[in-house]
Structure formats: C-alpha cells, structure tokens
Design a protein around this nucleic acid. Structure first.
Lengths: 230, 230
DNA sequence: GATAGATTGAACTGATCAGTTCAGTTCGGC
DNA sequence: GCCGAACTGAACTGATCAGTTCAATCTATC
C-alpha cells in the first residue's frame, strides 16, 4: 500500500495481495470455485503459490475475500448510478430512462454477473455468503432507490404505497430481460437492446406508478399516501 | 434405500437408467457439477459405476441428460399451472392471484431452483445448455402466458400492446422477491410470504395493464365490452 | 553494503476422482 | 434349464490439486 511503482521488477513486493485478489476474481469467475486451481491463480497473479497462503489463508478464505470485494465494488457502482436519480420531476420519463439505463449497465456489468453466477454456484457450499452479499449490495441499493421514489411520490408525481416494494419492482422490470439476453452475463449485450429493455421497463413502471395527471404537479387522484391531505 | 431387496429385485435391468438420472439429479443439485463424484452418484442410485458408463457416456453426458430432464419436468409443471389461467375475466384479480401463485410455486420448486443454480454455475463450461433450457422452459411458458394475456386484452379487460413483453413482466413482478426470500432456492418459503409476494406482483401488474373502467368497484359489464379490440 | 523480511521456485504429500478393466453373478427369454 | 446380455464389485491408472516445506533470492531501509 505504501510501496511505490515497480514496473520493471516483476517480483516487486508491492500490492501482491491486490494482484492475487484480482487474478482470483478472474479465475473464479471463469472456472467456478471447484475447478479453479490455486496454481492457475498464482500464475495469473504473477505470484508464487506460497504467497497466496501468506496473504490469504487458503482457497476458501481467498474465495470469501474475492466475493466480498466484488460485492463492495458492484454496490459502489450501483449507488453511484443512483446519484443521478431525478429529484426534479421535470421530464420524469426521460430521467427514469437515464437512471434506469445506468442501473441496467451495473446489472450487466461483467463483475456483477460473475458475482451472481458464483453466488448461485456456491451457495450450497457457502450458505452464509448469500446474506453477506445481499446486505452489502441489493438491499442497500433498494433502500436508496426507495428513498428517491418516495420523494417523487411525496411531491405527487408518483403514486406509491410501499416505496421498498416499488423500488424492487422497478429493478425487476428494468432487468427481467437481461439474463436471457446476455446468457447469464457471459455474452455482451448490444447497447440498443439494453436501452430498449430499459425503456420497456420504465414504461410499465410509469403505467403502474405514475400519478395520472393532465395538469402538471396535480395531486394524486387515487389512494396515494402523499403529503397532500385529501 | 432405492432398492427394496438385495437378493430378489435389485438388479432389474430396466429402470437403471431412471435411477441413475434421478440420483445424479440429487447429487448434482446438492454438490454442483465439479464436486459431484460418480462414485457417490452410483452409490445413491444403487448401481455399479460401470453401469453409468454403459447407459450414459460419462460425467458430462450424464449432466446434460440430467439438466434436460429437470428442464422438461419444470416446463411441464409450469405449462400445467397455466392451464388454470382465466379466460373468463370475472373476478380477474382473484384469478390472476391464483394462477400467479401456481406460477410462483413452480418458480420456487426445489428442482426448478436447482436447475437455475446449476445453469448459473456451469454456463461457463456448458454454454450451449443455456439455450437448450431456455427454449424448453421459460420461452414456452412466456409464449403460452402471452397468448392468455392477449385474449384478455382482445376482450378489453387488459390494455396490452406487446403480450410477450407483458408476459415476461408479469412473471418478473411475481418472482422478483423470491430469490432473496428463499436464498436462491435453498431455503423453504412460508406460504403466506409467497402469497404476499404474488399479490404484490399482481397488484402492480394490474395497475399497469388493467383497462381503466368507469365503474370504480366493479368488473366491466358482461356483454357491454365484447371482443372489440381497443 | 549489511540486515531482515518478503518472495520465489520447485519438489513433495496425501487425497480425490474420472474413467477403465475384468472376472464373476444374475436375470429375462427361449 | 440353458444362453447371452446386462450388471456387479473391486481394483487399477493417470491425472489433478490443496496445502506444505525449504533453501535460495530479492528489496527496502538503515
């Protein structure tokens, strides 16, 4: 961490640990936990096998570190994408399409896809990892998204009783086509197709949750629990 | 445990193949492809290891047969569940809740969940299996569901431009909470929770796709809205 | 330039497992 | 009641791999 760059020396002792985790991430994602060999990981990290044991105990421990690492990274990306969520409901549909596209890009991201595959594959061997990843990722994102949706609902532009549920459904509608289109994240997706999938999701979301309004900023027509008293 | 007696009937040579596939399904689902051992499968099938090679070439071939088997079985269940889809729109919401519950039950079914986990786990090793399973399962179900939705749309009870998309979104809304609630299918789900998830999905689906009616609390008049397209 | 600690390569152990072989057993059909 | 095909059990091969050991080497720092 405090080392300086040693480009010329392949055996510099700088962040071996980072290199190991990065290589392990690639190899695990490519071959799965069971088939991934520590020799392969060591070779791909440009590191001797004992160094892996020095830095991270063994294969199992390495796997846990790798998953925690991807989960944290994916979560950060997703939360960053949510920063662009509209608070100004002007051109709400366009804004939702924009933020939806960013969320969908996070979803089809190579590392996110690898994380999902590894979780599915190894949940039988590592049952605890599921909750770890869930709490460090999707749950936080859903919370954040729910908060943004609730603001729009409070302002009368959406009609939402349960913001958490709406947030989950928003993501579900955005992403429901993506696994099939990307072969569970193993095939790149055409940007046009991604955008089409997103607008389809946003369209249905707005059908369900947009407050029917002919006048801008009109009060909710039905059973909204907005700030506006009936 | 699979045999009834070791002297009289254990070596019937008829359904060895079935026993092998059934055992392989359990073992693969439990341990994954890489960690599953042919010795374990043979033992659990009550069969000698060479018999596996006689009937089904090797581990890889066995795996393909197993996945095709689960996919076909899951698909049959799902299509059967769709048989209960309402054509009579009387009490549409209740009917959708009922059929939605059956679909969700198919989704959280132990074998369906195992199929999803195995697909995610092994798609890198068996890229072709994804399309096989997709075509033999979800795609057929989506087509069937889309047809049913289109009939309701034609009759004026739903407003749907793209029935395929609506069918996909229906399923997405029904199932979006289930992976988290069942830990990717490794934990049983409380039937009440399942029902709650389904009604939440149906609720949003109807918000998005139900044709707005003039009478707020009742279904459309029986004969008033015929098969006229909107 | 000397020292201490990190790193390396290479070899080794012990275990697991896919796939094969084969001599003997069992069963259905004739 | 016999024949041939399916099945069995057990042992074997060859390969892979996690984890360990150790002497030699590198690097930073003083």
């Amino acid at each position: 961490m405090t080392e300086r760059d040693t480009r010329n020396a392949p055996r510099g002792r700088l962040d071996k640990r980072q290199a190991i985790i990065a290589a392990a991430l690639r190899v695990f994602a490519r071959e799965g936990y069971g088939q991934a060999s520590l020799d392969t990981i060591a070779a791909e990290a440009g590191v001797a096998k004992p160094t892996i044991y020095n830095h991270l105990g063994g294969k199992e421990n390495l796997f846990r570190h790798v998953l925690a690492e991807i989960a944290a990274r994916s979560n950060a990306k997703t939360l960053a994408a949510l920063q662009t969520f509209p608070t100004d409901p002007h051109e709400l549909r366009d804004h939702l399409n924009t933020v939806g596209l960013r969320l969908a890009e996070c979803f089809v991201d190579e590392q996110s896809s690898a994380l999902r595959r590894l979780l599915h594959a190894e949940i039988a061997r590592f049952p605890d990892l599921f909750d770890v990843v869930l709490d460090s990722g999707p749950n936080q994102a859903t919370e954040a998204l729910a908060g943004r949706l609730a603001r729009l609902a409070n302002a009368g532009y959406l009609t939402i009783e349960d913001p958490i549920r709406a947030a989950r459904q928003f993501v579900a509608l955005l992403t429901d086509e993506l696994p099939a289109m990307t072969a569970l994240g193993t095939r790149p997706i055409n940007p046009d197709d991604l955008e089409r999938a997103v607008t389809a999701g946003v369209d249905t979301f707005l059908r369900a949750f947009a407050t029917p309004t002919d006048a801008p900023a009109g009060p909710p027509a039905r059973e909204a629990v907005g700030p506006l008293p009936g």
